[in-house]
């Protein structure tokens, strides 16, 4: 990597491609990355930060106002809201993350294989993708919880399947475009193995688009999983989870104690907004390059 000292003028740096995708993100892009990193950190270390038991409350202090002990107040059961929000980041973020990783890997591999082999394999993949498209993600997740019981594992597995077609479709058309390029023909003439061409040449060139799509999918997956927990089919009580907390706070809304729903909802919106904006910037970048 080239290190530039102050005052030096940057003239087409030699290894631009390595970190190319971070260029041109703009303020909003970097801000979104910041929010997402914070949220991810919270998901990883959140439970370690909590000094209070998220599930232990004092019923007498239901809807307690913010105090020195409880910075954001307490929920209907007198549990500390801040602790539950911090701990709830884990289920709220890890679920969508798993969905995105699984569907991105599956979708990209399918897309590369379909674009590379073409013919009947391509047609078969397209048909399967079309069939899965018929099931909206949330519906497939609800069906899965009907079969395997309410909870995150069934929902995450179902959403991973439901999200794969979106990734596969976008990655396939990008891979097809790359495949038609002269440099691929040149590589083939040199006798380079197809797998190697796919992984080392096509994949890097569609990387930004895949990443952009994965980022946007993360927001959608978060909304779907939080919605599932909200209606009581996802993360089960008493586990803290942002989506479930918006739902649990409904009782407080009617009594004009909207804190719980409000804070949890705001965290969801902020995370999804960050994912959307970053995905948008990345998409613009990937279009600008091709």
């Amino acid at each position: 990597m080239t290190t530039l000292t102050a005052g030096e003028v940057e003239v087409t740096p030699p290894r631009r491609r390595t970190w190319g995708w971070t260029r041109g993100l703009g303020v909003s892009g970097w801000l979104s990355i910041g929010v997402l990193v914070l949220v991810l950190l919270l998901a990883v270390v959140g439970p370690l930060l909590a000094s209070q038991d998220p599930n232990e409350g004092n019923l007498a202090q239901g809807f307690g106002a913010p105090s020195v002990e409880h910075w954001l107040g307490q929920d209907a059961n007198g549990r500390d809201l801040l602790t539950r929000l911090v701990v709830g980041a884990r289920t709220a973020v890890i679920g969508p993350l798993l969905v995105v990783v699984a569907s991105t890997i599956l979708g990209t591999v399918l897309a590369l294989a379909a674009a590379w082999f073409g013919g009947w394999f391509d047609t078969a993949v397209a048909r399967v993708v079309d069939a899965v498209f018929a099931f909206p993600g949330l519906l497939l997740a609800i069906l899965a919880t009907a079969l395997f019981g309410a909870g995150l594992p069934a929902a995450v597995a179902a959403l991973s399947i439901a999200y794969t077609p979106y990734m596969a479709r976008i990655a396939r058309s990008a891979a097809l475009r790359e495949r038609g390029m002269p440099y691929i023909a040149a590589l083939r003439v040199q006798g380079i193995h197809g797998l190697s061409i796919c992984v080392r040449h096509i994949l890097p060139n569609i990387r930004t688009l895949v990443l952009a799509n994965a980022t946007i999918s993360f927001g959608f997956a978060l909304i779907d999983l939080a919605g599932l927990s909200f209606i009581g089919l996802g993360v089960q009580p008493p586990t803290a989870d942002w989506g479930a907390m918006v739902g649990e706070g409904l009782a407080g809304i009617l009594q004009r104690y909207p804190q719980e729903s409000f804070y949890a909802g705001a965290l969801i919106v902020a995370t999804v907004a960050a994912a959307n904006v970053l995905g948008d910037r990345l998409t613009t970048r990937s279009e600008g390059r091709s």
Binding site: V246, S261, G265, V269, A270, V272, N276, V277
Partner: peptide, 18 residues
């Protein structure tokens, strides 16, 4: 619009109800 796109239906529902 960019901000509203990130608002899930159930969060919108809760805020509107309130």
């Amino acid at each position: 619009s960019t901000a509203l796109m990130a608002v899930p239906a159930f969060v919108a529902a809760v805020v509107l109800t309130l």
